[in-house]
């Protein structure tokens, strides 16, 4: 037997008792019919698949989260790479600078984006001063673009941090060795740097994609009349109507989607290796 098992037991114990057990309670609810004296049923799950809107909203949310993840990756990888390889001094300060904005409420930040993105807002004023846009309105506010901008803003720092953490440990000697073997910079990157930073990319993608699926504040404040996502549906079941059972069922369908995509991701990671 593993004699260091005590190292992991506190965390696992905590998660089993305070996450898995509560989830069993919710699984139970998701199979319960509405009303008093509910009985076992799969109606809540059936409802989800029988009505177009729920599938439609789920697909919309998955797509949105996917865009947010890809854009975050495109911003974060170069950022982490530059921090590690070009900006040697002060990279810890930079790391702090990336985390500090999180000290502000997500909701308050969404309103800030409203001030920036709306027609006649700060972005429009600045862009016009720079003669980058004409005199027409910016037209960004209350679009899915506005939602994605605000969501990338919230989530990409996680990705920078995880990628930075793995890149920083990429052995300089390996890179040098590769160079001395006359491998071009691109080959070195593809064959040495990228594979070694993969754990950071995977961790980062999880930290961006998964929470994106449950978001509902940014779509509502910035998304206009199309600001409904699957997270809104779950919130409604508790705050607007008494629909816990259905809300729990939707959550578990989401969970299944997430676990499925993580399985795909890890298979993909293995094949590459």
């Amino acid at each position: 037997m593993d004699r260091k098992i005590w190292l992991m037991s506190p965390a696992v114990f905590l998660l089993l008792i305070f996450c898995v057990v509560p989830l069993f309670i919710m699984v139970y609810y998701s199979f319960l019919s509405d009303g008093t004296g509910g009985h076992w049923t799969i109606q809540n799950y059936m409802d989800f698949f029988q009505k177009d809107i729920y599938l439609k909203l789920t697909w919309k949310t998955v797509k949105m989260s996917f865009y947010v993840t890809v854009i975050s990756l495109l911003i974060s990888y170069p950022m982490a790479y530059v921090m590690v390889s070009i900006i040697q001094g002060g990279k810890n300060i930079l790391l702090m600078a990336i985390i500090v904005p999180f000290w502000t409420s997500q909701l308050v930040r969404a309103y800030s984006w409203q001030n920036l993105l709306r027609d006649g807002g700060l972005l429009e004023i600045v862009l016009r001063k720079l003669h980058l846009i004409g005199s027409g309105p910016l037209g960004l506010m209350f679009t899915s673009t506005a939602v994605i901008i605000a969501m990338v803003h919230i989530f990409f720092p996680y990705m920078v941090i995880t990628i930075y953490m793995s890149l920083e440990k990429v052995d300089g000697a390996l890179v040098e060795a590769s160079k001395s073997l006359k491998a071009g910079p691109l080959t070195t990157f593809r064959r040495i740097v990228l594979p070694l930073s993969k754990p950071g990319i995977i961790s980062g993608c999880i930290l961006v994609f998964v929470p994106s699926l449950g978001v509902f504040v940014e779509p509502r404040v910035l998304g206009g009349t199309q600001g409904t996502v699957i997270g809104t549906v779950i919130e409604d079941q508790f705050f607007e109507i008494y629909g816990w059972n259905f809300g729990a069922a939707v959550s578990f369908i989401l969970l299944a989607i997430i676990l499925l995509s993580m399985a795909v991701l890890s298979r993909f990671a293995k094949e590459e290796a």
Partner: peptide, 17 residues
């Protein structure tokens, strides 16, 4: 009733989406 609220909420969701 809960039943009516659920129906109304779903109707509104259909409008919004």
């Amino acid at each position: 009733t809960d039943e009516e609220k659920r129906k109304w909420n779903e109707l509104w969701l259909e409008v919004k989406s």
